[in-house]
Design a protein around this nucleic acid. Structure first.
Length: 437
RNA sequence: GGCGGGUUGCCCGAGUGGUCAAAGGGAGCAGACUGUAAAUCUGCCGGCUCAGCCUACGAAGGUUCGAACCCUUCACCCGCCA
């Protein structure tokens, strides 16, 4: 990850620029020395997900190019709810949930940006800091006065909602809060560039206007495209529809790695550009590999390696690669020695049972989180496997010979979903164990 | 406040007293083909002690041998009128 001198050109090559204010002026601003820029992150969940990494990594790209990123946690804006991209009113979060989310959000952002006191060290801010004690009258006079309602109504995010049931005054006010953030960050850090997802364009330009009015300062804006994959899903949505989270307790490193390995050929180039720090030469070589030798999936492997390492670290990556090699390597599971197997399988989703043999349907249900009906169905359809061998008898139970090294059972549904069952001689049966951190 | 329309399984949506676990589409799952892709074809797609049973059609009551379908009340949504 060598520093990139011309960030703007790099971002453009990556497909990261959807809109910007005058490109020449922005380029000149960036060329004039370390620039302070910010991107806001509202606490909409208990963890960041893969899609959130696009703007976060973009901040990192600026930092690597010698600029100072400000990661702004939306302690205030998250309390209000952004109407952008929504068709209906958000339900309000309670203060405890919000505070908890802000804490985890901050911790996760800290993992990807270098924070500190130096000129290009990142800064973490929370907009609750300057809104908590703000008085309504002051807010209405100092901020509200600068917002013509007719302009506010024209903003895409508001107009869309007026056509679909309206929105509350609370959400209507969101753009004022976000604009105030820009002004505040300008005052505190001299921040004159805001970046964000393209759905933020309206909110960002509102901030530009306010900044010009109250500080007579000119500033810049740049937005990232909201990328959807070949099937129309937002980036970072698993096929089941759920988000792929950064928190290992919510999405295991193994699941993240597997998700990335399964990325569609048509999308993998985009993902490499947005979600890794690989340089242009490397990425373009991988593009060629995908076009010429798609079955090797070199690009998917590179993507999975890079991002898993960034999110969970190299040690975790090594473990996850080992499981994948063991489970999908095509070799005989029974030929692996116990230590190799134990180490590899420790990373896979696992379930612990007592010593006695049990019906396979029950084990499938418990191990893979299926209902028993689903487990029966999987066997009936020929989609269930024990130790890589198709299960044909829906009433079968395990027998002594099935336990690898007298300890493990590898269950699989279809090509992808795998669960390890380990039996533990001593304590109770049936308790589920989360994959170790 | 008045009048009218609506609320169906993950989503959209048909069904207007028995043959309804509920048409059709989407999403999802499995099999075949492959590359742990995509496309295509086939099957599946509430739960369970699975040839049967249980739970379900906004909620609660009621009518009936029998209700997603009829009646009453309540909740929420959408129109139109004040």
């Amino acid at each position: 990850m060598a520093p990139v001198p011309d960030v703007l050109a790099d971002l453009e090559w990556r497909g990261l620029v959807a809109q910007s204010t005058d490109r020449g002026a922005l380029a000149a601003h960036l060329a004039g020395g370390p620039v302070t820029l910010y991107c806001g992150f509202d606490p909409t969940a208990d963890s960041l997900h893969v899609g959130n990494l696009v703007p976060l990594f973009a901040l990192r790209r600026f930092q690597l190019a010698g600029h100072r990123p400000v990661a702004l946690a939306g302690g205030a804006t998250g309390f209000i709810g952004d109407p952008s991209g929504r068709t209906s009113e958000r339900s309000l979060l309670d203060a405890d949930t919000l505070a908890r989310r802000i804490r985890t959000l901050s911790a996760q952002m800290r993992h990807f940006l270098a924070f500190g006191e130096g000129p290009t060290d990142a800064v973490l801010a929370d907009n609750l800091d300057w809104t908590r004690d703000l008085r309504v009258i002051d807010f209405l006079r100092d901020v509200g006065k600068h917002f013509p309602v007719n302009v506010m109504l024209d903003r895409e995010s508001v107009a869309a909602r007026l056509d679909s049931g309206g929105l509350s005054f609370t959400e209507f006010s969101y753009q004022l809060l976000q604009s105030l953030d820009f002004v505040e960050l300008y005052r505190r850090f001299g921040c004159r560039l805001q970046v964000g997802g393209n759905d933020q364009w309206g909110n960002i330009t509102a901030g530009l206007d306010l900044l010009r009015r109250v500080e007579s300062a000119s500033a810049h804006a740049l937005t990232f495209p909201l990328v959807t994959d070949a099937s129309g899903q937002k980036i970072g949505k698993s096929t089941g529809g759920g988000n792929v989270w950064i928190d290992p307790a919510m999405t295991s490193p193994y699941a993240l790695y597997q998700y990335l390995l399964h990325v569609d050929d048509r999308d993998v180039g985009t993902y490499l550009r947005l979600l890794t720090f690989l340089g242009r030469d490397d990425v373009e070589q991988l593009d060629v590999a995908t076009a010429q030798r798609p079955r090797e999936r070199v690009a998917q492997r590179a993507l999975a390696r890079e991002l898993t390492a960034l999110v969970h670290g190299p040690a975790e990556l090594a473990r996850v690669e080992a499981v994948s090699a063991t489970l999908f390597g095509g070799g005989e599971l029974s030929s692996l020695d116990e230590d190799t197997l134990a180490a590899a399988l420790a990373e896979a989703p696992s379930t612990t049972v007592g010593t006695s043999d049990a019906p396979l349907v029950d084990l499938l249900a418990a191990g893979l989180g299926l209902s028993k009906s689903d487990a029966r169905r999987a066997i009936r359809e020929g989609g269930a496997y024990l130790n890589n061998v198709r299960i044909t008898d829906g009433n079968a139970s395990t027998s002594a010979a099935d336990w690898l090294h007298d300890r493990f059972l590898v269950l699989r549904r279809g090509k992808r979903a795998i669960a390890v069952v380990e039996r533990v001689p001593h304590d109770g049966a049936g308790s589920r164990a989360a994959p170790p951190e």
